[in-house]
Design a protein around this nucleic acid. Structure first.
Lengths: 195, 195
DNA sequence: AGCGACATGTAATACGTTACATGATTGG
DNA sequence: CCAATCATGTAACGTATTACATGTCGCT
């Protein structure tokens, strides 16, 4: 039931509406948690019943009213007590690796195309994360204590995407190692390093 | 519904019992797919109904009979047709990153302890993967075409664990950067490089 | 004597995804 | 005029987790 914790973690920074939370899950912090708006609205209702969040309705004209959720002291305590509790690494589920594992069933070029497609996705994500880093964390030396934590989660996103890109390159090299089975050699790709 | 594909991918290499599959999901290929035995038995029953796998009962004395599942030609085709279809990167869900994000709520040393615990887990996983690499893929130059694919998924596991360890180190350095809040400095840790 | 590995399954519950539903505003 | 963004929700369905259930063998 760690979706609840993820929501409270975002609320611990500042108040959000359900809509905001859904957008953040999809964007900036999406590399460590994902949820649809339906899950979030349901969970927020539960959390309010349990007294861990409270909401205020903000009347708006022209557009639907907002329900702004904020953490209660009980919610904050509950989240803080959870942090030191031992937890396990999350489950890994990657379609692309299933495809790679079964790669012998298709021509290498077919798999290579799908790997290239994913490489592009990861390059784009990485660029996004670099933008966020530049904007919010330009100088690691002058962090406030509070900023450290957001920075560190972002670092994980950057490392993860970098690592994916490197892996894709390794796959593409090996797949094209037998040229007459894998189509033309891949175009030059700039190497990626964590920065 | 990619659990079905993951099962078929394992069966494409060689036949397994449900029990075997559950063990493999938990062990060697666990870094790209996880499933409990209940999920697997249910899915195998469905796949058999759909004609994608077939099973033979192997009578045993003393222990329960085995049901050995193998891929049918239809199952093989279905899996092969799925591989070139575009798919998205899997969802990320990491409790540890939620904890890091909300890290300001607890003393840095409390978070550091949990990070250290995870570091140990990832070091152990990495060691396991290195053993597998040494045992099954000692020399990348002499691969059969079929072996490449298992090797590449293993490489991803190795990279992933290495990256986790590096990230944990980065966190621990930043958390102990303000010594009077973060307890004693961490012991020396050998640096990790992908090998 | 008790635990863990082997081997398969059912049942109940929790969680996640997809589709449906509403309705004003802004920009192309 | 159509699509996207803002903003919230319900209902149905599918997937995943947890607990329960059974029974032998080999080890300590």
């Amino acid at each position: 039931m760690a979706l609840a914790h993820a929501i409270l973690a975002l609320l611990s920074d500042h108040s959000h509406t359900g809509y905001d939370l859904a957008r953040d899950f999809d964007g900036s912090v999406g590399f460590f948690w994902k949820a649809t708006h339906q899950q979030i609205y349901r969970e927020l209702a539960d959390l309010e019943e349990q007294g861990r969040v409270r909401s205020e309705v903000m009347l708006q004209e022209g557009r639907p009213n907002k329900k702004i959720y904020h953490l209660t002291p009980e919610g904050r305590d509950w989240l803080a007590r959870w942090i030191p509790e031992p937890c396990e690494p999350g489950p890994n589920r990657e379609d692309l690796l299933v495809k790679t594992f079964a790669g012998a069933l298709v021509p290498p070029a077919a798999l290579a195309r799908e790997i290239e497609r994913h490489r592009v996705i990861h390059v784009q994500k990485l660029a996004q994360y670099h933008v966020i880093q530049q904007k919010y964390f330009p100088d690691p030396a002058v962090f406030t204590l509070k900023d450290r934590y957001g920075y560190l989660t972002l670092r994980r996103g950057i490392r993860q995407e970098t690592e994916w890109i490197d892996w894709c390159d390794e796959v593409l090299v090996l797949l094209t190692a037998v040229p007459n089975e894998a189509g033309p050699p891949p175009e030059e790709r700039p190497s990626v390093t964590v920065q």
